[in-house]
Amino acid sequence: MTGWVGSLFARELRIAVRVGGSGMIGVLFFLAVVSVIPFGVGPDLNLLARIGPAFLWIGALLATLLGLDRLFQADRDDGALDLLLMAGRPLELVVLVKCLAHWMATGLPLVVAAPVLAIFLNLSPTAIGAVTLTLLVGTPALTLIGAIGASLTVTLRRGGLLMAVLVIPLTIPILIFGVSAADAAVTDPVPFLTPFLILCALTLISAVVGPIASAMALRFSSD
């Protein structure tokens, strides 16, 4: 019975890799955002080291949101969404698998690129490790929460901007704890583990809430 999960995952991943490398575009966007920051705040290396984790997180958030609007829309455009709904498989699980595949194709490259970009921002090795680890744990949550926005705006032709507006307030906790954990690894007074474990908890919560809400929205969208 689990065969369909594997084939759905493989299909999503294949499409993502073959269609113009959407993961690569996300990484390029990430690079562009991060390299613009010094022009905004000045090339002061100490300042950059202090705000670096925050900007890496914001860059990852924007890059994730940018790629999410096609998550369900592509399937809706060619009629595949109707068939996904009719296939007799639990839609929540379908959404979860699609999100995981999407994260593998777009989120994971961001995590891999983060250490390289961190060098530009003068981050210490500890900070680089901490930021990468928090991104690894936190970006799936961004994808899962973004899936809610993506399924709510699936019927809208140009829903990308609206989706970002709807999703960004919901991602605030993840941003806060992600950046806090990364900062805590460098500055002493707060332990690293407290915010990091809360971040893990948030990711797990969104792995439940995201697919349920998103499946509900998709069912209504076919109306």
Binding site: R11, R14, I15, V19, D78, A80, D82, L83, M86
Partner: peptide, 13 residues
């Protein structure tokens, strides 16, 4: 089985 107007094919596959 629903056989509608759209083909539900992925051009990349």
């Amino acid at each position: 089985h629903y056989f509608g107007h759209q083909d539900a094919l992925k051009p990349a596959l």
